[in-house]
Design a protein around this nucleic acid. Sequence first.
DNA 1: ACCACGGTGGACCAGCCGGTCCAGAAAACC
DNA 2: GGTTTTCTGGACCGGCTGGTCCACCGTGGT
Lengths: 193, 193
Amino acid sequence: MAITAKGRATRQRIIEGAAAYLRSDDPAGVTLDDIRAITGTSKSQIFHYFPDGKEELFLAVARYEAGRVLDDQQPHLGALTSWAAWDRWRDAVVARYRTQGRNCPLGALMSQVGSTAGANEVVSALLSRWQFHVQEGIAEMQDAGLVRASVDADRVAAAFIAGIQGGVQVLRSTGSVAHLEAALDTLIDHLKG
Amino acid sequence: MAITAKGRATRQRIIEGAAAYLRSDDPAGVTLDDIRAITGTSKSQIFHYFPDGKEELFLAVARYEAGRVLDDQQPHLGALTSWAAWDRWRDAVVARYRTQGRNCPLGALMSQVGSTAGANEVVSALLSRWQFHVQEGIAEMQDAGLVRASVDADRVAAAFIAGIQGGVQVLRSTGSVAHLEAALDTLIDHLKG
DNA sequence: ACCACGGTGGACCAGCCGGTCCAGAAAACC
DNA sequence: GGTTTTCTGGACCGGCTGGTCCACCGTGGT
């Protein structure tokens, strides 16, 4: 049997409960007991489903949250084929992080789990996929003759990723999305030439 | 006497020792005992000079590190009056963070101290000063007729800050300065028109 | 020389937190 | 129905960590 449906449900409940907690409260000092209380489980269950304890659980939550990041930007991110699409994407990104406010689930996770190899891998993979979509969008715009060919799609896509990440980080400190908007608008302006 | 020269020296030794520790080792779980050991002091001294304990000490270290950030970019950052100057500044920033590698002292501090009002204030002040210098540079380039007047200096300066912050954050995850370079180069390209 | 006050050392403590363990309930399989 | 395996509850623990306390030392002023 290995793992029953009930077990899988409990495991998922723990992940989603932890994710919800990270998203709401001040997640500076999340403790296993907090998660236990919120998810209505017991210590033994956490260690039953995540034998390596805190680190394994947090990594699972990080993967779960990382998946949501790109999903929240769809379908815009996957079809950056017109200036209108770019604008919609820009608005979706800004809206998402404005709603999120200072509480960045992934950022909080990274603060907690530190700089373990696994955590870095999750973030790197997310950023890589993200950048790939932007790069594809730039390339398609170039193919359509809407962006000049001299633009280095890979490099500018990397600049977008950096700008977004930095904008979000500034948001976490200052509570303002101005920098995020400035980065996106300036880079889109740059594409427009 | 209130506070003697010896006392001031000890206080400074604690701050600099803590800063050095944050810069070298994996600073995920810095403890007061670590700092005590490294600085060759005792618990009572730490609480003597920083009555509010860990938070006050870390805030002092954050202020100390924040001061260094802009200093490391001088004199370039203060005189962005030619394209050559911009390039030198760009190189200085990249060099600084390439040397620093994954260990970002301020980032580590922020992870530790969480999102207290004081910490946010220190970071906000730093970013604000940083952005001001960039904005001044853009304005001077515009006055000299080297950058078109249609550029919104304030907005592009904000994009620079976001791009740099994001580039550094990506560096912390992936160990590569590529994103930082991409952000700086793309934004400078944008200024060049 | 003396004294007062700041500087220093380090033992000590209380609470928290990740992690262990075992006993019992529930479910799956025969 | 019985047995085996998984799921669940919760008591328990060991050690770490921020913080306290007090006794002693060093220094500066007079």
